[in-house]
Design a protein around this nucleic acid. Structure first.
Length: 277
DNA sequence: ATCCAGGAAGTCG
DNA sequence: CGACTTCATGGA
């Protein structure tokens, strides 16, 4: 995609493949806030501000290099969307949320965030993660960085309950200790989706759906289809054999969409979640 | 009051 | 294996 790097800013002219609202509101990221006609976004220990100006998206940040990768700017989403047009419902979904991009987020941040996401709603997920950063993260000119693995590993369980994590507090406590000591997050980049998933499933609080979200939103593996309550509705709208097994449903959808499954899932998820039929 | 939210773990057969 | 139950929390 075409973009320019200016003085503490990235300028994007093709807004058909970059819509800030679509990207942030499709459920892949939680640490952002809308203020007026702009969005502030935090990732790891970086921050940026997005707004539209003269039919362009302006990303103001001191860390342009980080956010070029983060927003996946070197990938051709026009080509991906063209290929997805062959599938049922994707025309409608991409007409609605065609500006979605899959972010390249931090693996550790995704693991913690999506453990919190389990059986939870998005406003509350955002609130818990914000408190987590405020409680354990380092302050850096006006915002809180995502906490280090050590900070969470050394935390007492009851603090996770205090910030509203509920029964997930135990998962956060156990998993952050393992991540801080004996888990190689970088190895997963080199593994196949199936093998990387197996490793993630060993972590407390990480099941198939959470693992697939981590693999999609951090490792950019796209031969997977995260199955939550909404994805089950998507499955039922396709002409596939009835099933009540989440893994079977997920595998069949991957059989349909192949390596574009992750992208398809995001366009469809964003569409169905905002157009309750 | 009951149900739901980007589900996972534990138990039982 | 597969099916069924339980698990905090808060908003609708």
């Amino acid at each position: 995609m075409k973009f320019e790097i200016g003085n503490d800013a990235i300028i994007i002219r093709n807004t058909k493949e970059f819509n800030t609202e679509h990207i942030l509101d499709c459920g892949q990221v939680f640490r952002y806030r809308k203020s007026g006609d702009s969005y502030t976004l935090s990732a790891k220990n970086h921050k940026c501000l997005l707004h539209n100006e003269n039919n362009c998206v302006i990303i103001k940040t001191e860390d342009t290099e980080f956010f070029v990768d983060y927003f996946d700017l070197n990938r051709d989403y026009g080509k991906i969307k063209d290929e997805l047009l062959q599938y049922k419902y994707l025309d409608r979904a991409m007409d609605y949320g065609g500006g979605i991009r899959i972010l390249n987020q931090d693996p550790y941040e995704m693991i913690i965030s999506f453990i919190i996401s389990a059986n939870n709603n998005i406003p509350r997920i955002k609130q818990i993660i914000e408190k987590l950063c405020r409680y354990f993260g380092k302050e850096k000119d006006g915002f809180y960085a995502f906490p280090s693995a050590d900070a969470l590993a050394n935390a007492d369980v009851h603090v996770f309950r205090e910030i509203g994590a509920g029964y997930r507090a135990e998962y956060l406590s156990e998993t952050s200790k393992i991540l801080a000591n004996e888990f190689d997050l970088n190895e997963l980049y080199t593994l196949s989706t199936v093998n990387a998933r197996k490793k993630l499933l060993k972590l407390k609080g990480v099941g198939r759906k959470v693992a697939d979200c981590i693999l999609l939103f951090a490792y950019h593996k796209t031969d997977l289809f995260p199955m939550d309550t909404w994805s089950q509705k998507i499955y039922n709208s396709y002409d596939l054999p009835p099933s009540n097994n989440i893994n079977v449903m997920s595998d069949r959808l991957v059989g349909l969409f192949g390596n574009l499954s992750g992208y398809a899932q995001q366009y469809l998820y964003y569409y169905i979640r905002n157009n309750k039929t």
